Simulated assay, not measured.
Amino acid sequence: MAIVTPRSQRWRLLATHAALIGFITLTMLPLLMIVSISLRPGNFAGGSLIPTALTLDHWKLALGIAVMGPDGQWQQPAFPVLQWIANSMKVALVSAAVALLLSVTAAYAFARMRFRGRGLTLDALLLLQMFPSVLALVAIYALFDRIGEWVPWLGLNSHWSLVLAYSGGIAQHIWLIKGYFESLPVELEEAAAVDGATPLQAFTHVLLPLAGPILAVVFVLAFLGAMIEYPVASVLLHDEAQLTLAVGSRLFLFNQRYLWGDFAATAILAGLPLTLLFMVTQRWLVSGLSAGAVKG
C-alpha cells in the first residue's frame, strides 16, 4: 500500500531542504570570496564574487615564484610564505607530539592511580585552563629571555622555545584522555597482570591500542592549536625567516600596503595541510569524539 505524504508535511520538508541549502551556501561564501580574491588581478578585497579576469600571480608569489608586473618589471615574492608554512608545520608537529606524550601519561596516572592530592591537582588543571595564555605574555617573554641566557636554543626567536610554551597547555587534553581511560574496563589490565604483564606493559600493549581514536583527537587539536596560535608566537619570534604563518600573515596588511590577493592565496595554501590532516584522521576523529560518552 502506497504511503501518501500530507501536503503540509511536504511543504515542511521543502522548507527544511531550502533552509539547509541556504545555510551551506552562507557557510561556503567566505571560502568562495577568498578564492575569488586570490584569482583577481591587483590586491583589492572588494569586487564581485565572480572575477571578470583571472590571474595566478598571487598564487605564484605565495609559492615563491617571480611574476611579471604591470610595468613590465619582474616582481619578486614579498615574503617567504613557504618558509612560514614549514616553520608552522614543524612547530605544530613537534608540540603536538610532546603534548600527546605528556597528556596521555598524566591521564593514565589520574585515571588508574590513587594518590594524595589527585582531586586537587585535577581541579587546579581545570582552573588554570580557564585563563588564556595571552594573560601571561609578559611572564612568558621574561621567562624565555632569562632561559636564553643559559640555553640559547631555548631562548627568544627559537622554534624550540615555542614548542616548550605550547607543550604546557595540556590540561584540556589530560581531562579528555582521562575520561576515555575511565570508560575502559579495569579488568583488561587485571587480565594482562595475571598473564605476567607489568603496569607499563599493560599500558602500552592494552590501553594505548584501545585509545587510538582519542589520541588522534588530541593530536589533531594540539596540532591545529599550534598552527593558528598568534599571541605567544608573536612575542617569542622576531626574525622574518623564523616566523610562523600566523605571525607572518600580519605583514601582508600593513598601513597603505594591503596585499589582499597575496594574503588570500596564502590562506588557501596554508589550509591545504590542515584539510589533508582532517581527511586522513576523519575516521578516528569521529569515533574518538563519540567514544567514552557511555560507559559499559
Results as ranks from 00 to 15, higher is better:
Q73N: 14
A96C: 09
G117L: 12
L61G: 01
A142H: 11
L63G: 07
L127T: 15
L143Y: 02
Q76C: 01
D71N: 13
L82H: 09
I65W: 07
P70F: 09
G64I: 08
Q76G: 02
V134S: 05
P77L: 00
I140G: 05
A78M: 04
A62N: 08
L126D: 01
R116I: 09
V81K: 05
A66Q: 11
Q73T: 12
T121F: 12
V134Y: 10
Q73C: 10
G64L: 10
V67G: 06
K90E: 07
L135H: 15
P80T: 00
A92I: 04
P77T: 02
L93N: 03
R116A: 14
F110Q: 02
F115W: 03
I65R: 04
A142V: 13
F131D: 10
I65A: 05
L120V: 11
P132Q: 01
Q75W: 05
D71L: 13
Q129Y: 12
A139F: 06
M89E: 11
R114W: 03
F79C: 01
L63C: 04
A97E: 08
Q75S: 05
A86P: 12
L102W: 05
Y108C: 03
T121M: 10
F110S: 00
I85A: 07
F144L: 07
A96Q: 06
Y108M: 04
Q73W: 08
A109G: 11
V91I: 10
P80W: 11
F144A: 00
L102C: 15
I85H: 03
V134K: 08
L82W: 10
S103T: 04
L126Q: 12
G72M: 00
Q76L: 04
Q129L: 12
R118N: 14
Q75H: 03
L82D: 02
M130S: 14
K90L: 13
Q83T: 02
L143W: 07
W74E: 13
F131T: 14
I140P: 15
A107S: 04
N87S: 13
R118E: 11
Q75V: 14
L63S: 03
L100S: 01
A96G: 12
P80Q: 03
A111T: 02
L120K: 14
F115P: 04
W84M: 07
N87M: 10
V94M: 03
R118V: 08
P80H: 02
A107Q: 02
L122P: 01
F110Y: 04
L63D: 00
K90M: 15
R112I: 00
M68S: 03
G72Q: 01
G117H: 08
V138H: 03
L61R: 10
A86C: 10
D71K: 07
A99C: 13
M130G: 06
L63T: 06
P70C: 13
D123A: 15
L125C: 12
D71G: 07
S103D: 06
A109Q: 08
S88F: 01
L135M: 15
I65F: 09
L137V: 08
Q73V: 14
Y108V: 00
A106C: 07
L137H: 09
W84S: 12
P70T: 13
I65N: 04
R118T: 05
A111S: 10
A86T: 09
A109M: 05
T105Y: 05
V138A: 09
P70Y: 12
M130L: 15
A97F: 09
L122S: 04
Q73F: 10
P77Q: 00
L125I: 13
